[in-house]
Lab assay of single mutants.
Amino acid sequence: TDVTFHVNGRNLHLKGADEELLRRIEELIRRGADIEELEKAVKEWEK
């Protein structure tokens, strides 16, 4: 799945995201995470 999140005026584009990653990103956004936290979560998922 390709999806782009718009967070605090910045874009986080995910290519090939699975349901697990999407749920994790949505949860972080609900908690008020900043873009750096979201990018870190994506990097951890990519490993």
Rank of each mutant, 00 (worst) to 15 (best):
T1F: 15
T1R: 15
T1P: 07
D2W: 08
D2G: 04
D2P: 02
V3R: 09
V3N: 03
T4D: 06
T4H: 07
T4P: 01
F5D: 02
F5T: 02
F5G: 02
F5I: 15
H6I: 14
H6Y: 09
H6V: 15
H6Q: 12
V7A: 03
V7Q: 03
V7Y: 09
V7K: 02
V7W: 04
G9Q: 01
G9F: 04
G9A: 01
R10E: 15
R10V: 15
R10Q: 15
N11W: 15
N11H: 15
N11Q: 15
N11M: 14
L12K: 00
L12W: 14
L12G: 00
H13Y: 12
H13M: 08
H13A: 05
L14N: 00
L14A: 01
L14F: 04
L14P: 00
L14G: 00
L14M: 04
K15F: 11
K15D: 05
G16A: 07
G16E: 05
G16T: 06
G16L: 06
A17P: 09
A17Y: 06
D18C: 03
D18P: 15
D18I: 02
D18W: 02
D18K: 06
D18L: 02
D18Y: 02
E19Y: 10
E20G: 14
E20L: 12
E20D: 12
E20T: 12
L21D: 01
L22Q: 04
L22A: 03
R23G: 11
R23K: 14
R23L: 11
R23E: 08
R23F: 09
I25P: 00
I25W: 01
E26S: 10
E26M: 13
E26K: 13
E26C: 09
E26L: 14
E26W: 11
E26V: 14
E26G: 10
L28R: 04
I29Y: 05
I29G: 01
I29D: 00
R30L: 12
R30T: 10
R31C: 13
G32W: 03
A33T: 06
A33Q: 07
A33F: 12
A33W: 12
A33C: 11
D34K: 08
I35G: 02
I35R: 01
I35Q: 02
I35H: 04
E36P: 13
E36V: 07
E36S: 06
E36K: 06
E37T: 12
E37H: 09
L38P: 00
L38G: 00
K40F: 14
K40G: 10
K40H: 13
A41H: 10
V42H: 02
V42A: 06
K43A: 12
K43G: 11
K43W: 11
E44K: 08
E44W: 08
E44S: 10
W45V: 05
E46K: 12
E46C: 07
E46R: 10
K47Y: 11
K47W: 10
